[in-house]
Design a protein around this nucleic acid. Structure first.
Length: 217
DNA sequence: AGCCAGGACTGAG
DNA sequence: CTCAGTCATGGC
């Protein structure tokens, strides 16, 4: 299979730098990481817009918000009862220090990751998204796109591999670097959105020549 | 009309 | 430790 550094270079050449940032502020990124769980970006984005309109993308306001207001805002993202609880547990974890505390940049990555994973409703992808995008820590975010892309490129093991195995695979292949991991994930998402769901399917896919199925998506 | 989307948790076997 | 079931909206 195409070596991952080459895969990254190919996508970068095809799509250009994404400078992807899933939110305007640290708080928005963290909230978004929960709201996007098993939901399409459009619905999650609606929820974020509602929160912004309600003035709840401000740290103290969000902490002080009542459940009914918060639930109404996040409604379009689906799973609103579950996500309400998950947001609360995450906010409760962050609250003692706030979002700008030096702690978030000082603690070892694995320590912080373990803390996040201990929060109810924060699994590996959500934890890594927060670490990479909100706190700019060099950890690779594995998601459905990442998994599918490897599988489509012939790495059959990827489809059923554990999160840990997939993450280790990427991180062993690419140097530990926040900007690089950010860009790599953004490119994979960009590729998936422009080709995987394109119709006609993958006519000018940049990964076409590397794909055993005749389409690199 | 179903099927699915950038997950995580729970209970069962 | 696998794995099906659960949570839910909106777009196609």
């Amino acid at each position: 299979m195409l070596p991952l550094p080459d895969l990254f270079a190919t996508l970068l050449h095809a799509y250009g730098p994404q400078h992807w940032w899933p939110g305007e502020t640290r708080l928005e990124i963290i909230v978004g990481a929960v709201l996007i769980q098993n939901t399409n970006w459009r619905n999650a984005s609606r929820a974020i817009d509602n929160l912004a309109l309600a003035g709840l993308l401000e740290w103290p306001a969000l902490l002080a918000s009542d459940d009914n207001t918060l639930r109404a805002c996040i409604w379009p993202s689906g799973f609103y009862n579950v996500k309400l609880r998950r947001l609360r547990s995450l906010l409760n974890y962050l609250a003692p220090w706030g979002l700008e505390h030096p702690r978030w940049l000082a603690l070892p990555l694995q320590t912080l990751r373990a803390e996040l994973l201990a929060v109810q409703g924060v699994g590996p992808e959500t934890a890594d998204s927060i670490l990479l995008y909100a706190f700019e820590r060099p950890t690779f975010v594995v998601d459905a796109y990442t998994r599918r892309l490897l599988a489509r490129l012939g790495a059959d093991w990827a489809q059923r591999a554990s999160y840990q195995a997939l993450q280790a695979h990427w991180m062993a292949a690419l140097p530990s670097d926040t900007a690089l991991y950010n860009e790599a994930h953004a490119l994979i998402v960009q590729h998936a959105k422009t080709h995987c769901r394109a119709k006609p399917r993958c006519a000018d896919c940049p990964l076409l020549t590397h794909c055993p199925f005749g389409s690199g998506c």
